[in-house]
């Protein structure tokens, strides 16, 4: 934990700028206009859902809307469709919240299921992610404007859970569909300021990994998951 060469470096910049350091307290940045907050602010929840679907499917993302009671069957069908395990799941109370504890038991009877474990070491969790055919996680938000899910890292859900599996499914409650990244960032900042969120990584994921680096032809799955599915659960 060190900072090296700072004062000389910053004094030089201040000298070039022709003003003393430590001005920010009296000159904070003031947002010039409220476009980020205003954009799509007139949309109803139903319109945001429709927009989220349209923009997600364009990525392309497979998009489902289900009632809570339909969720276990959908997940089982998804696992079968993608060729089965190994699965990688987060350690989280969300399974109980969505009444998926029975599903967890039943899927584990049929498939290899690994969990990202808070008390496992780095190599163990990364190995589970490396061999995973399917990764499933719970998103904090779905952004209607861009078809983006957002997730934050915690001891039960590491960063690599979202990137190493071949297929990735994200579950999000309908009430967590917001207009755009503005609302999600405002929430993360508020949670962090209140001490309710202590995460080293927040990811905004907009569909499958892709690249246009060879002749600008878009190909999917260069590094991250080859395909992505969002499941919006009615709450």
């Amino acid at each position: 934990m060190t900072i090296q060469n700072r004062d000389k470096f910053l004094d030089h910049l201040a000298e070039r700028l022709g003003q003393p350091r430590h001005q920010l307290a009296t000159h904070p940045y003031q947002q010039l206009n409220d476009l980020p907050q205003q954009t799509l602010s007139d949309k109803t929840p139903a319109e945001l859902l429709a927009l989220a679907r349209k923009n997600s499917e364009a990525l392309p993302v497979t998009f489902y809307e289900v009632a809570p009671v339909e969720l276990p069957q959908l997940l089982t069908d998804y696992v079968t469709d993608k060729g089965g395990g190994p699965l990688l799941l987060p350690t989280t109370s969300h399974f109980a919240d969505y009444q998926l504890t029975d599903w967890q038991k039943s899927i584990a009877a049929d498939q290899t299921v690994n969990y990202w474990l808070p008390d496992a070491d780095r190599a163990t969790n990364l190995k589970a992610a490396e061999i995973a055919n399917i990764g499933i996680s719970f998103a904090d938000f779905l952004l209607a404007e861009s078809g983006t899910v957002t997730v934050s890292t915690n001891p039960g859900q590491g960063r690599a859970l979202h990137f190493l599996p071949i297929h990735y499914l994200s579950i999000v409650p309908r009430s967590r569909i917001v207009a755009r990244s503005t609302q999600a960032v405002a929430w993360y900042e508020k949670e962090q300021a209140a001490g309710c969120l202590d995460s080293s990584a927040i990811h905004f994921i907009t569909g499958p990994s892709n690249s246009g680096d060879i002749e600008m032809q878009l190909v999917t799955g260069v590094h991250g998951p080859l395909d992505v599915t969002y499941v919006v659960v009615d709450d």
Binding site: L143, S181, A201, F204, I205, T206, N210, G224
Partner: peptide, 8 residues
């Protein structure tokens, strides 16, 4: 609208 991965 956003790049596929926006990470903090």
């Amino acid at each position: 609208k956003l790049t596929t991965y926006v990470t903090f």
